[in-house]
Nucleic acid binder design. Structure first.
Length: 907
RNA sequence: GCCGGUGUGGCGGAAUGGUAGACGCGGCGGACUCAAAAUCCGCUGGCAGCGAUGUCGUGUAGGUUCGAGUCCUAUCACCGGUACCA
């Protein structure tokens, strides 16, 4: 006790406080957990980091949110699991290896060592005994075993798919490596190339993934909406168009069969076999198809490029009318989506409309809106193709109005809407639904089509032509085809010792692809010579099941029975950038685990929190050549005018001005990154944690600002001083509510209001910034509270002791020490129960009501807490500010919201 | 292009349809100090006014409501995702 009192009298020394607390937690194994059926469990999971080299503020934010929730939940009596691991495979390791001429494994392991130390300095309540790196064979062996089982089930299969090809480096490029249509390293124009790839049939689970979203009230609506749209369920018809001179029909999918009679051509993808065939005798078309191969494969690139097409010379037969319609190749039709062919209805589809106008293809109106600007429609003309090159557009004729603007000469949104059919023979007068059902029945009966549910979602391509990933456990045998590696031969090891390849300047192509020996093996079925698959898995594969592995450290199988104690995850936290891909694969893989009998839940996580980015100011100077020198914010001083507005900035080193470049995501390229480690060294982990929780609500972007960090440090020092000063005073009495005077009651009420608010903010709203603000207000209040009477000191003691507990989830090191300063034995504070609200302390004698006249605030009044609506109204109407506004007016209505406002409506 | 989100003082933000700007930063004034730092106290959205107070104000334009930062429609700007960055 003596040494505690001595230390307590000293100023707050974060380094000493944090080292002591962390040492104690380690000695106590405070955050190592086991399954305990007697207690409610809470699995708090953050997205595992990629070991890029150094912890960045985005990590700190993610893991601090997770830590605050974890510690709070444990104080609620839950058995909390908070694990950590490393998403250790990935492209950056290969890029770094090429640059540094070293092996990806070595770089990765060194980064993990470094970042683990950084994470530990932040004092997270993590069970480190469960840590793993996904690049280790004892992790990925389970992934390989699952894959060979999925092959046998038909969930994993191989087919061709298009990739970005760099013709100079002779490698496949990731979408982010394609910049303006060129390879980032070589600058060569990128080409599309079809290669065989492994896929997982996520589309078999499309409906379940869609329906499952309705069982996740704890997920943000934005994420669920994005996933719904991504899955993109649509109901429509599959329609077969016979092709003149071809045996096989052209199959299209449409959600608008009601517009079938408006089809004036059919569009197909450049890679479509029919286009390829047509090009054989058509040099112009062959050249065009060759041109379509330029550029990358990303949707953003494909969708924003100019819409282009060319006639194939082939004709399709309209399945109802028997008319001939031309078949066009169009660059916006993609082989990978649906059937690679679409029926074109330029009268009622915007994209087809623009395409038809550009290539002077006929436009036919077959659906009329029910009304136009509220006017009823008299008639709609069909198109006329005069044959002289002059095109007349269909037009709508309204009753009592003749206007040129109603033609199809320019697109109008209403052309695409449902309406009543016309110019469609037997279908005339039918609605969308009637036409849909009529055609579905008719085409099915004639074997020309059928009803179909289509999904936008495509199967998950898991092959990567890279080295630093989990080898795909398949053997290619000339005789037996693709044979899964037998389970007793797993894992297929990725060789880590490839430093030689890189030191010689190699590595642009995968070392296991360039090594003639690695692939050699024998076929497990026929025993003949065979080759291994040299592709590796997409790294989303590892990150799709890591959460489950945390529950079963050391298990010989992928997971064991412990998984069902911990799963599903109670709170998942990560960046919004993962809203679709990772979070969809994560949900999909959980269903694969379930169907393999390994887990018994349907969804992997019940609650999801998506945090925003960490951003910072940018500063630069222009170079003579037009490039920019980016300057780190730490080296810059802001200049202000007399109203505190920013007017400029100078470099601290030379005092000369620098340009201000706006606030952007922290990145190396803009040199606006702030190193968490240096911040911890300067201010301590608690201050860094406190700032990252206080500066913004978790789902918004957080602007790093060092002056703000200093403010947090100031708060902790004041809190420290307040507690140590109080603890140095003589013993305090116990609070006796009956004896409290008005000032003591007011402070105590503020405390209990804070308990209520902080609990709600941390536990339910995840509104950490407002919880901290409430505690700052409480500290301001206790700082002004000069009452040294016995009950005064007792109230102060209750406030400070409670604050230590309320702040513990955010600043656990400070709380750990101050708990002892307040006379308690050293302990794990998460085992203290969360403070309880004393309802009697919340009672108020009077309330402040806002008084409005016609919705505008005119006065505030104090009313007794027990005052009736009538009393409040009378008091409000008697207020002089109110009477002056009511002069000469008649009161028409008075709205009284108890405890809030009185609004007098007068006129 | 498409899908999702965000927009409030000089700045980060608060306000869960009911007093817009809590809390923090910055700024200004004061106390302490030989001085500075640290610390403490006070003020701080714009305009008008000595003041009481009035008036305007939540990207822009409309609308719903007794009452809108919050709900609806349109629009602009920025951010995230767009299937091989993680």
């Amino acid at each position: 006790m003596q040494d505690i009192q001595e230390q307590a009298s000293n100023d707050y020394d974060p380094q000493a406080v944090e080292a002591a607390a962390q040492r104690y937690w380690n000695e106590q194994h405070a955050y190592e957990v086991k399954e305990d059926p007697a207690r409610p469990k809470f699995f708090c999971l953050s997205m595992l980091p990629y070991p890029s080299g150094a912890l960045h503020m985005g990590h700190v934010r993610n893991y601090t949110i997770s830590d605050v929730i974890s510690r709070y939940q444990r104080m609620q009596g839950r058995n909390v699991l908070q694990p950590m691991g490393w998403d250790a495979f990935g492209l950056p390791a290969e890029n770094a290896a090429i640059k540094n001429k070293t092996a990806p494994a070595k770089w990765t392991y060194a980064n993990i060592e470094h970042m683990r130390g950084q994470l530990k300095s932040l004092g997270y309540a993590i069970d480190w005994t469960r840590e793993f790196a996904t690049c280790r064979p004892d992790y990925y062996v389970h992934e390989q075993r699952m894959f060979v089982r999925l092959m046998k089930k038909g969930i994993a299969y191989r087919r061709n798919a298009v990739v970005n090809w760099d013709p100079v480096d002779q490698t496949v490029l990731a979408n982010e490596q394609v910049i303006d249509g060129r390879g980032w390293r070589t600058g060569a124009p990128v080409e599309k190339r079809e290669i065989p790839q492994w896929f997982l049939k996520i589309t078999d689970y499309a409906q379940e993934l869609l329906d499952g979203l309705d069982t996740l009230p704890g997920w943000p609506d934005a994420v669920k909406t994005m996933q719904r749209n991504w899955i993109g369920r649509s109901e429509g018809l599959e329609i077969h168009f016979a092709v003149e001179g071809e045996a096989a029909p052209l199959t299209v999918f449409t959600t608008r069969p009601d517009t079938l009679m408006g089809v004036t051509f059919v569009s197909i993808a450049g890679e479509h076999p029919l286009a390829q065939k047509a090009a054989q005798g058509n040099p112009a078309l062959a050249t065009f198809l060759e041109e379509l191969k330029h550029g990358g494969v990303s949707e953003a690139e494909l969708e924003t490029q100019e819409k282009r097409g060319m006639a194939t010379g082939l004709f399709a037969i309209h399945p109802v009318t028997g008319d001939k319609v031309p078949v066009w190749v169009a660059n916006f039709v993609l082989m990978g989506y649906g059937t690679g062919a679409v029926m074109a209805v330029p009268g009622h589809d915007e994209r087809d409309f623009h395409f038809a106008k550009k290539y002077r293809l006929p436009i036919k109106a077959v659906v009329a809106p029910l009304s136009w600007d509220g006017k009823s429609i008299e008639s709609v003309t069909m198109f006329h193709d005069t044959g002289s090159g002059k095109v007349e557009y269909p037009s709508i004729h309204l009753e009592d109005d003749i206007s040129e603007s109603l033609t199809w000469s320019a697109w109008d949104e209403r052309f695409g809407q449902h309406g009543v059919l016309l110019n469609s023979c037997a279908l005339n007068g039918k609605t969308y639904r009637e036409a849909f059902d009529y055609l579905a029945d008719k085409l099915s009966a004639e074997d020309k089509g059928q009803r179909r549910v289509n999904y936008r979602l495509r199967d998950w391509g898991v092959s990567r032509q890279r080295y630093w990933g989990c080898p795909i456990p398949v053997i290619r045998c000339a005789k037996c085809g693709d044979v899964p590696v037998p389970e007793d031969q797993l894992p297929v090891l990725l060789p880590e010792d490839v430093a030689d390849v890189y030191s010689k300047g190699g590595g642009v192509q995968s070392p296991i692809k360039t090594d003639p020996e690695w692939r050699k093996t024998t076929c497990p079925e026929c025993g003949g010579a065979a080759e291994r698959e040299t592709d590796t898995f997409d790294t989303f594969m590892e990150s799709s099941w890591y959460y489950a592995r945390y529950t079963s450290p050391g298990a010989a199988t992928q997971v064991d029975e412990r998984a069902n104690y911990w799963l599903p995850v109670d709170q998942y936290i990560g960046g919004i950038e993962h809203a679709i891909l990772h979070l969809l694969y994560f949900r999909f893989y959980h269903k694969l685990l379930r169907d393999a009998g390994m887990v018994n839940s349907d969804e992997p996580a019940t609650n999801l929190l998506c945090q925003g980015m960490v951003i910072a100011d940018t500063f630069y100077r222009d170079n003579a050549d037009g490039s920019k020198d980016w300057i780190n914010p730490a080296d810059v001083e802001i200049q202000r005018d007399d109203k505190a507005r920013t007017i400029g900035a100078v470099l601290k080193a030379d005092g000369q001005p620098v340009q201000i470049g706006g606030t952007e995501k922290m990145s190396k390229s803009k040199n606006n990154g702030v190193d968490p480690q240096s911040m911890v060294g300067k201010f301590g982990a608690d201050t860094v944690r406190l700032f990252s929780m206080f500066a913004a609500p978790p789902e918004q972007s957080l602007e790093w600002n060092e002056a703000g960090v200093e403010g947090m440090s100031r708060f902790l020092r004041r809190f420290w001083r307040e507690v140590t000063t109080h603890a140095a005073q003589p013993d305090h009495a116990v609070v006796d509510p009956a004896q409290l005077d008005a000032g003591q009651k007011a402070l105590r009420r503020q405390l209990h209001e804070a308990i209520q608010k902080v609990g709600d903010d941390l536990g339910r709203r995840h509104s950490f910034n407002t919880a901290i603000a409430a505690l700052m207000e409480l500290l301001n209040a206790v700082g002004k509270f000069a009452d040294m009477s016995e009950q005064g000191r007792a109230v102060r003691h209750e406030v400070l002791e409670t604050m230590v507990l309320l702040l513990n989830p955010v600043v656990p090191h400070v709380s750990h020490r101050l708990w002892q300063v307040l006379g308690h034995a050293e302990s794990v504070l998460e085992d203290q129960p969360w403070p309880k609200v004393d309802e009697s302390a919340l009672v108020r004698d009077s309330l402040t009501l806002a008084v409005q006249v016609n919705g505008k605030l005119r006065a505030t009044i104090e009313v007794a807490a027990s005052a009736s609506k009538d009393e409040a109204e009378q008091l409000a109407r008697a207020h002089p500010h109110v009477t002056s506004f009511l002069e000469g007016k008649t009161v028409r209505k008075v709205i009284v919201v108890p405890g809030k406002i009185v609004n007098i409506v007068a006129g």
